[in-house]
Structure formats: structure tokens, C-alpha cells
Amino acid sequence: METIEKLFSFINENAVKIEEEKELTYLDSVLEVLNAWLDGDKIPTGKVATKEDIRKAIQLSILKGMRENAQPNHQMTPDALGLLVGYFVEQFMDNKKTEGSKISILDPAVGTGNLLLTVMNLLEDRVEGVGVEVDELLIQLAAASADLTEQPIALFRQDALQNLMINPADAIVCDLPVGYYPNDDVAKDFELKAAEGMTYAHHLFIEQSLKYSKDGGYLFFLVPENIFESEQAQGLYKYLQQTAWIQAVIQLPDSLFSNKAHAKSLFILQKKSADGKPVKEVLLAKVPSMTNKQALEMFFAKVQIWKKEQK
């Protein structure tokens, strides 16, 4: 923690100076600090930091900026959720580790890159990332974070629901943007377009992600807990029956969310393939409180038992 605190202080103190001198927002100032660090104009002193130290220090700085100037599209996936997603990516992609080639991971709503970088840091040098983000400031922060943590991520600034110039990925990770998608001209080309009114963006992101994942690829979504209770849920379920095999539905602790209405689950899919098959039993589980070490150990043991039974 001492290294993370020192890195955060370095970023924060310099960002505050830039904020005052140039009359920029705090987040824009953080970006300037990160770019100066990359260019070698101003670098932190002290012992060499790990990739995780750097990511966490940058995360703290960005969170401070988001709290000071809250915007609906400026949100970050908390570390606890990122680490859980990373754990399940490891469990489902372990067969790819033995093949020698790198695992490609796409986040179609990459934001500042925190979720993707958390997963990549866990998998270490076995992965290469791709991120898509429409917000210019967020993707610049993601680029600086990726460079400082020396992670190979290709970033594309565009609406992720339009045509993407990327290769299908081995895995998708995404904290799905929740709400209605405003561009009906784009939505009309999706199978999950609502029969009436506006379409849920999180449904369209699921369809787009399946389009850009390899056959047999795995998809790890943070979804609204009530995703199958909405008026558009029947169409989503029908579409998934045709295109994917549900692997797991993991309910997340209420304590991770400030409001029960914003609670999420981890929804894991596998894109159907000619040589694949569905799991014998879908993993249905609830993650206990993250502070209850014994209960967490039992939860992870249950996941391992389920994994062995599927083989």
C-alpha cells in the first residue's frame, strides 16, 4: 500500500497544480500528469512499482476526478468486481494457456481501461487486449494507463455498436453500459432491436460482443441483476438460446453496490461452435461478503467442484 499511496500522491499533487495553473478539470490534469510520466518529463521517485501498483494508483486518481465532476458515462468498475471477473476468466481460459498462443481479450466498453487492465494483470504475459470507447478523455486515460503498465492493448475510439475493424477475440469482458441506446439507425440492424420504442444498450452490447468473439469463445458480462425481468427480456433469452450456451450466473454481494437497484451479476456465456457443447449444469451461485474469508474460500471451492464435474 505504501508504494500505491506514494504513486497516488505523485499523480494527485501534480494534477492539482496543473488544475490550478491551466484551469483544467482534475481528470484532464491527471491525463497530463500521466503523459508527462510516459515522456519522462516528470516521473515518481522511490522503488520500482508493479503493474498492479501503477494501475491502482491511477485508478484512485481517476476515481477522485469522477467524484469531483460526475458524468453519467464516467464510471469505473470497482477492483473487487474486476478481480472476480479476472478469476473466472482464468478458470474458463486455462485450456488456452497450454496452447502457447496469447489470449485475445476484448472490452467493447473499455472506459478508462480499469476492468481490462485488472484482468490482464492477473493473466500476466499470456494476453493481449483490445478496447473500444467513444469518450475521448476516457480512452486517452486508458491509453496512458496501458502504456504505464506496459500492457499490449489496441484501443479504438468509436461507438462500439457500429461496425468494428477488429478480429474476433478469444474472450470478451465488459461491464455493460445500462440504459436505452439513443441511435435507432444503428439499433435497427440488430436482432435484439426492440419491437417498439428504444432498445436496451446492454442487450445490443451482448449481441455485438457475440458477433466479435470467436466460435467457442467465452464472454464475461457484468449485467443488471434483473436483466431477465424487463419487458425486452424474452427477446434476449430467445436470442441467447440460438447463439450461446449459458455457463454461469453469479450473483454479486449487495454490499458492493450503494443502491440495491444498481446491483449486478456476473453472466458468463460461451459462443456456440460446431465442436462444442453446453455444460452439464449451469453454475448458479452467490458470492458471499468479500470480507468473509471462510465463506469466500467455500465459494471458490464450489466453483472448482463445478468445473471438475463439467469435465
Rank of each mutant, 00 (worst) to 15 (best):
Q208M: 13
Q208R: 15
V178Y: 05
A201F: 09
V249K: 14
S230I: 13
C174R: 07
V186F: 09
Q241C: 14
V223C: 14
A187R: 09
N226C: 06
Y239L: 14
E191A: 00
T149K: 15
L164R: 02
E229A: 03
Q158R: 09
Q158P: 09
Q208T: 13
G216W: 15
G179Y: 02
L204Q: 10
G216L: 12
G197E: 03
D184R: 10
M198P: 06
K188C: 02
A154P: 01
D189M: 05
P177L: 03
F228L: 02
V223S: 15
I246A: 12
P182M: 03
V178D: 01
T243F: 12
D159W: 08
Q247G: 08
Y181D: 13
Q232K: 08
V173D: 06
T243N: 11
Y200N: 13
P152T: 09
N183A: 11
K188I: 07
Y200W: 11
L219P: 08
N183V: 08
F220R: 00
Q247V: 07
P224K: 05
V178W: 12
L176M: 06
A233N: 03
W245T: 07
A194V: 01
S213Y: 05
F156D: 08
N163A: 04
S230D: 08
Q241E: 10
K193A: 10
Y218P: 00
G179T: 10
N183C: 00
P168M: 03
L176I: 00
D175N: 10
G216F: 07
E207R: 14
K211N: 05
L236Y: 10
F220Q: 13
F156C: 01
E225T: 11
C174P: 02
Q158I: 09
N226K: 14
I172M: 07
V249R: 14
F220A: 01
A160F: 03
M165L: 14
Q158G: 09
I246R: 06
F190A: 03
